[in-house]
């Protein structure tokens, strides 16, 4: 088993959610994480708050953002255990945000 990082790129449509829809979305995430834990393949995970700063270039220019308006904002990540990249991508299919237009980037964590 190798470690893979699932990087969650936010759904654009989620900012139009009603309170009830947000709650049900979150409940789906809890259920998903629980099922991964039950299978023993969940290693860790963290969420990122919206907004932030970007440092760029030789002059280390600091700008605001990424903003929610920009298309691809990373919302958080999981580290999961899987046999292969394909198997890790299968796990990524479980993300409750996919129906709302979100995407999951699946990358293998390199072992030194």
């Amino acid at each position: 088993m190798k470690n893979f990082m699932l990087i969650f790129i936010n759904a654009e449509r989620s900012d139009k959610f009603s309170p009830e829809e947000m709650q049900s979305n979150m409940q789906q995430w809890f259920g998903w994480i629980d099922s991964l834990k039950a299978q023993g393949i969940y290693v860790s995970g963290e969420a990122l708050l919206p907004g932030g700063k970007t440092v760029k270039g030789a002059n280390a220019i600091v700008t605001d953002g990424p903003f929610a308006e920009s298309k691809e904002v990373v919302g958080g990540y999981f580290i999961v255990k899987a046999e292969s990249l394909e198997a890790a991508a299968e796990i990524g299919k479980g993300s409750p945000d996919l129906p709302h237009g979100a995407s999951v980037e699946v990358r293998e964590v390199m072992k030194f």
Binding site: D15, P19, M22, W29, E46, A47, A68, G76
Partner: peptide, 14 residues
């Protein structure tokens, strides 16, 4: 309120 909820939805998933 919407902003607070979006923040919560983002942060509480984990």
């Amino acid at each position: 309120v919407q902003e607070a909820f979006l923040k919560a939805m983002q942060a509480w998933k984990f």
